[in-house]
Simulated assay, not measured.
Amino acid sequence: MEQTSVMQDRDVIDGHHAVHYVNRVGWLRAAVLGANDGIVSTASLLTGIAVSGASRDAILLSGIAALFAGAMSMAAGEYVSVSAQSDTENADLAKEKKALAQQPHVEWEELRDIYIARGLKPDLAGQVATQLMDADALAAHARDELGISEVSTARPIQAALTSAATFAAGAIFPVLAAVISPGSTAITSVVLTSLLCLALLGFIGAWLGGGHWARSVARVTFWGVLAMAVTAGAGRLFGAAI
């Protein structure tokens, strides 16, 4: 609790204006996912190939290929998935805009009932619904009926670029560890470097998102260890078979 409270205090400006963590959700999710995937997938691939008995050149080539292929895959995947979310949001907004034009009173009642369900008295809820619809009816319904806001709205290009860049940033560390390490210590260097990077990523993600750092670090390192262990087992098994 104290650690989380300290993190929150750092984001208080002028004593009372807080920078809320939810404002970072759009890019933070893509950044953490990209970096984590870059570290884990590249390190796992290098480990699996190394234990299979492949040559040093083959290991390094595989790592570099994984970096570029993974970054492009992350960019394409994020763009496609977030674009689908954006299309859904736009379709809902179009339906809401049409409903506001055809039956404004029904839409007013929907908004009023939402505020009543949240605890406002009927008269006050009606006044709030009226004032918000007079100001911007579509924005009011998008936010309170559909749950679409400026903070949560889909941004495909931002998600794609963030994921690609952070994947490459994460993947470069296990690749560099393999490059600078002698052949006999390459596996150990890749594993240790990757686990250190994952722990740092977990801490930074918790710090930026206001979460508990120990839980975040444990989570990302556990899955990193599991991924590398499974891939190493597969590399040894199939490498011996080949």
Rank of each mutant, 00 (worst) to 15 (best):
residue 92 D to P: 00
residue 93 L to V: 06
residue 93 L to I: 06
residue 93 L to W: 01
residue 94 A to W: 05
residue 95 K to M: 07
residue 96 E to C: 08
residue 96 E to S: 06
residue 96 E to P: 05
residue 96 E to G: 03
residue 97 K to L: 03
residue 97 K to S: 08
residue 97 K to M: 07
residue 97 K to N: 05
residue 97 K to E: 11
residue 98 K to E: 14
residue 98 K to Q: 11
residue 98 K to P: 02
residue 98 K to C: 02
residue 100 L to T: 15
residue 100 L to H: 11
residue 101 A to W: 10
residue 101 A to M: 13
residue 101 A to N: 14
residue 101 A to D: 15
residue 102 Q to F: 02
residue 102 Q to R: 08
residue 102 Q to Y: 03
residue 102 Q to S: 15
residue 103 Q to V: 09
residue 104 P to W: 06
residue 104 P to E: 07
residue 104 P to H: 06
residue 104 P to V: 09
residue 105 H to P: 00
residue 106 V to M: 02
residue 106 V to C: 00
residue 107 E to S: 03
residue 107 E to I: 14
residue 107 E to Q: 15
residue 108 W to N: 11
residue 108 W to H: 14
residue 109 E to Q: 12
residue 109 E to S: 03
residue 109 E to K: 07
residue 109 E to C: 02
residue 109 E to A: 02
residue 111 L to T: 13
residue 111 L to Q: 05
residue 111 L to D: 13
residue 111 L to C: 04
residue 111 L to W: 01
residue 111 L to I: 10
residue 111 L to M: 04
residue 111 L to N: 07
residue 111 L to P: 07
residue 112 R to C: 02
residue 112 R to M: 09
residue 113 D to L: 06
residue 113 D to F: 00
residue 113 D to P: 01
residue 113 D to K: 12
residue 114 I to M: 03
residue 114 I to Y: 03
residue 114 I to G: 01
residue 114 I to T: 13
residue 114 I to W: 01
residue 116 I to T: 11
residue 116 I to G: 06
residue 117 A to C: 03
residue 118 R to K: 15
residue 118 R to A: 08
residue 119 G to N: 08
residue 119 G to W: 05
residue 119 G to H: 08
residue 120 L to F: 12
residue 120 L to K: 13
residue 120 L to W: 13
residue 120 L to C: 08
residue 120 L to Y: 13
residue 120 L to G: 07
residue 121 K to M: 03
residue 121 K to C: 00
residue 121 K to W: 00
residue 121 K to D: 09
residue 122 P to D: 05
residue 123 D to P: 00
residue 123 D to Q: 14
residue 123 D to T: 15
residue 123 D to V: 13
residue 124 L to A: 06
residue 125 A to Y: 11
residue 125 A to E: 14
residue 125 A to T: 13
residue 126 G to D: 08
residue 126 G to W: 07
residue 126 G to S: 09
residue 127 Q to W: 09
residue 127 Q to A: 05
residue 128 V to Y: 04
residue 128 V to M: 10
residue 128 V to P: 10
residue 128 V to A: 02
residue 129 A to Q: 09
residue 129 A to G: 12
residue 129 A to C: 10
residue 129 A to I: 14
residue 130 T to I: 05
residue 130 T to W: 10
residue 130 T to F: 02
residue 131 Q to Y: 10
residue 131 Q to W: 07
residue 132 L to K: 12
residue 132 L to Q: 13
residue 132 L to F: 09
residue 132 L to R: 12
residue 132 L to S: 01
residue 132 L to M: 15
residue 133 M to D: 10
residue 133 M to G: 11
residue 134 D to Q: 15
residue 134 D to L: 13
residue 135 A to T: 15
residue 135 A to D: 15
residue 135 A to K: 15
residue 136 D to P: 05
residue 136 D to T: 12
